[in-house]
């Protein structure tokens, strides 16, 4: 269970608390939509859940334990802008390899050639429609849709218990959106992994969500 307990958060220098005594929880296998008006702080909540921001007070617990300081986090975040989430000076194969547990100890040059001999990687790469020659490209040589597939693949390879998706398909065309979400839903069901997502598209939310949390209430 992913729990948020008595959360309080404000950006440094801001006079207003973005969240105050906020609590909610997500069960394994659940797919929760976060809904709130623009500027309410949905993205901030997503970042707090994934450990990108430290709350002023309160805590984020996964199965009763706080998020680990080191090692792969059980909560993985996928962002709206994949261009920001990948290192522009790293080839995509190395970026993808970051998601693999234990690969960091290996030399990364080795990881690139071993990448596709790993069955798990192959399944994800194939399921998301990532092409082999993209692996040797740099991020600026790929489109947003192609990069977002890598970000999803990287997050899924880290074997998260909960996935946070913040408007991940907003910048993509509908076909890519359907393909990426189709694969994510399949993976979530297979791993019994929970999902928290934000989307401005009500039709998409209706397709995916098992529960909706309205933050403004």
């Amino acid at each position: 269970m992913l729990e948020v307990k008595d959360l309080a958060f404000a950006y440094p220098g801001a006079s207003r608390l973005l969240y105050c005594d906020f609590s909610f929880c997500v069960e394994a296998g659940e797919r929760v939509e976060l809904r709130a008006p623009s500027g309410f702080g949905k993205t901030t909540l997503c970042r707090i859940l994934a450990g990108y921001e430290k709350p002023l007070a309160g805590e984020v617990l996964v199965d009763g334990a706080p998020l680990p300081k080191r090692g792969a986090s059980p909560v993985q975040l996928i962002l709206q802008h994949p261009e920001l989430a990948v290192d522009p000076r790293m080839r995509m194969a190395d970026t993808l390899a970051e998601g693999m547990a234990g690969s960091r100890e290996r030399s990364l040059a080795g990881a690139r050639s071993q990448l596709l001999s790993d069955g798990e990687v192959c399944r994800v790469v194939e399921g998301l429609g990532i092409r082999e020659q993209w692996l040797s490209r740099f991020p600026h040589e790929l489109s947003g849709g192609e990069l977002q597939r890598f970000c999803v693949a990287r997050a899924l390879l880290a074997k998260p218990k909960y996935l946070i998706a913040d408007e991940i398909s907003t910048m993509l065309d509908a076909v890519t959106q359907a393909q990426i979400w189709g694969f994510i839903l399949e993976e979530l069901a297979r791993e019994n992994c929970g999902l928290v997502f934000v989307s401005h598209s009500s039709a998409l939310s209706a397709r995916i969500a098992t529960r909706t949390v309205n933050l403004s209430d």
């Binding site: 959106q177 359907a178 393909q179 598209s201 039709a203 998409l204």
Partner: peptide
């Protein structure tokens, strides 16, 4: 059209 969430949401 088929990929739109309100229709098939499929590739």
């Amino acid at each position: 059209w088929h990929a739109l969430p309100e229709h098939g949401f499929e590739v």
